[in-house]
Design a protein around this nucleic acid. Sequence first.
DNA 1: TATGAATGAGATTTCATTCAT
DNA 2: AATGAATGAAATCTCATTCAT
Lengths: 221, 221, 221, 221
Amino acid sequence: MPRAVREQQMLDAAVRTFGQRGYRAASMDEIAELAGVSKPLVYLYLNSKEQLFSACIRREAAALVAAVRGAAGGTSVPPVPADRQLWDGLTAFFTHTAERPDGWAVLHSQARTQGEPFAAEVAAMREEIVSFVTTLIAEAARSAHGDPSLPEREVAGLAQALVGAAESLAGWANVEDSVSAKEAAATLMNFAWAGLGGLMEGRRWVPSPVPAPLPVPSSSL
Amino acid sequence: MPRAVREQQMLDAAVRTFGQRGYRAASMDEIAELAGVSKPLVYLYLNSKEQLFSACIRREAAALVAAVRGAAGGTSVPPVPADRQLWDGLTAFFTHTAERPDGWAVLHSQARTQGEPFAAEVAAMREEIVSFVTTLIAEAARSAHGDPSLPEREVAGLAQALVGAAESLAGWANVEDSVSAKEAAATLMNFAWAGLGGLMEGRRWVPSPVPAPLPVPSSSL
Amino acid sequence: MPRAVREQQMLDAAVRTFGQRGYRAASMDEIAELAGVSKPLVYLYLNSKEQLFSACIRREAAALVAAVRGAAGGTSVPPVPADRQLWDGLTAFFTHTAERPDGWAVLHSQARTQGEPFAAEVAAMREEIVSFVTTLIAEAARSAHGDPSLPEREVAGLAQALVGAAESLAGWANVEDSVSAKEAAATLMNFAWAGLGGLMEGRRWVPSPVPAPLPVPSSSL
Amino acid sequence: MPRAVREQQMLDAAVRTFGQRGYRAASMDEIAELAGVSKPLVYLYLNSKEQLFSACIRREAAALVAAVRGAAGGTSVPPVPADRQLWDGLTAFFTHTAERPDGWAVLHSQARTQGEPFAAEVAAMREEIVSFVTTLIAEAARSAHGDPSLPEREVAGLAQALVGAAESLAGWANVEDSVSAKEAAATLMNFAWAGLGGLMEGRRWVPSPVPAPLPVPSSSL
DNA sequence: TATGAATGAGATTTCATTCAT
DNA sequence: AATGAATGAAATCTCATTCAT
């Protein structure tokens, strides 16, 4: 069996094991067994547990980015509108993570909590997606509402919030069976869109002054 | 030294170690040393690594909920408006997580990835916060925009998204030190507020039909 | 509470724990708790686990010997016949060990398997009982069958076998509920008595020559 | 070195250590060192201390049963008389236990005092031997003394007593080196044989009435 | 290319024992 | 007379990793 194929089998097994058990709790024994090969072979191909984990991160990150980019596909002619790209990208994100829960767990839960070598790798991917989303948001805002006028920092924060909201909604959708992934995506898009629109029109919230509490006939202090 | 004091020292050390290293990578040796006691004493007081972790979760969850609830404080007379409560709660949330990054890591990153006994404990806390936020959103919508007319389900989804966004922003704000709690809270509040307003006015996003892509003169494959 | 009483409580707890768990598996914590005192007090009174175990052995050994000797009671006037003494002693042995299973376990199962300091203590007691039984057997044989003519060594072996048979029967009686301890004692006495009588009459078994096996038309070897 | 060989070495070391130190006091470290391997290898092959102990029990029990059965060997043609089989079996038993004192200690002293999983395993072996002896006794009685007329239950009790006596004598013979296996077997065989003969002739012991003790002029207490 | 055999280092947990009061 | 607080040492067990073939 050619090396490339075997390596993919090992990565499959590793992603599954890391995703379900966590980096530390996953054992090389289990991974090798799940891959159907002997342990020394895993070491021969992937050198160490750290490097194996790293390879998992890279593969899953690339797959996720490819899925999102591919779906949003800004290369078609004539160009697809930005809001539609955003929607397609979000949908692809939800679909992909739902289809590969272990891969998503590796990226989202595991890699970020295992210290520097790994956090950096996943941070790079995250940055790529966030900046992509940021671009789309800005463009969508411009095309829909004219001049953006949103400070860059606010856009970055929004992108971050959007991703968190997406993750939260994904978990919510999984628990309440009646809510499909698509429905969750729609809710999110809806929310983001309405929020974006409101923001562009300057609908901002400012803390209204709190009415002074009624004086308590306090004795002292 | 009395038992109660020692226990708190141990919990402090454990939260810090769990938060930084992760549940599996944290060793009881390190925790005991950080707490300035011997390992057997940790076991005498807290029985096992699992129970120690559980105690950390409970303590940090209680502290977080207390901080948020205390800040939002719906008990004052005359009552504070719901939007203000939401803002105060969010600010307290960001402040608290910024002040106790390890505690937040235990709740958000570690507990949720270590299987059932722990995930359930933190899920309960999260549910409490979500339902609290749901109440506030519904009330804020009613008082600010008249009759809500938002279906209950949409409000629930909004609350889920809001909490998820907050969680995500907490991590972001912790990394980029330059973002203060107030700033993060403002970003989120703005977005939610604008989104709420937009939604109540029926500003919904619907996928616009994609123009059929130009036929590609496909060569082969 | 006076020291002597407390000490007996501790010994009670220790015998029970040692008997049920074994020397090594019994923990001083459990013993102290069962005795209703704190651990340091156990150490104050009995110094160490070894000495505590030793004290248990001595107490239980003394009690067993006293029970057997008291029942067989060779001091009454007029003297009780030897066979009757043997029967009484055996019955007392069975009764005592049945009433104090933990004490018997300490002597029989635990002390003998925990290396030298303890094995010696219980061996002394065993020697005392065996020699007592040996005397009775010899005397019984003499009074019942005239001149003993049994070599001393054979008598010692018989006593040893008798004790083993007694233990085995005790276990058997416990499993098959229908066999009472008394019945077992009777069976044993019966067996010993009949065997003794046979032996005194010279009824010995000698290996009869084995008939040569039929020649097998073996090819080779 | 092939796995099967290593496993036997480990079992050898384990039997020796368990037999001399007892189950709890024996440490896996010591066993591994005695076997000349590292501790992890012991765990790799035998999984846990409990399973290692269990494997020891099974191996030693099988060896003992095989030795006894092989010596008694009821398959030869023409058949060996039952009394001769009994003698051969007893001799083999004493020889075997003398040759493998640690194995015998594991079966007799250790396994029976370590709670249910182990006690049951050794009880099964014992039951097998007891029923084998029961058969031989019944057959020997029939062939030597004509119609048995001994109730089945009495034969069973006899077999229990015989096996117990043998076990006890095995310990005795091991301590007093001067007692050979043949000697022990002869002692026991003699006793059993004489007892069997006596029983068949109705020589039973019944408690003779104790003469009323002379009234003691009791002073006080 | 592939593996059976093997281990050093370190994990959690328990226990007999002591000290200060 | 009695105990709450504390620990050094050692137990069982796991794991990432390597060697010889």
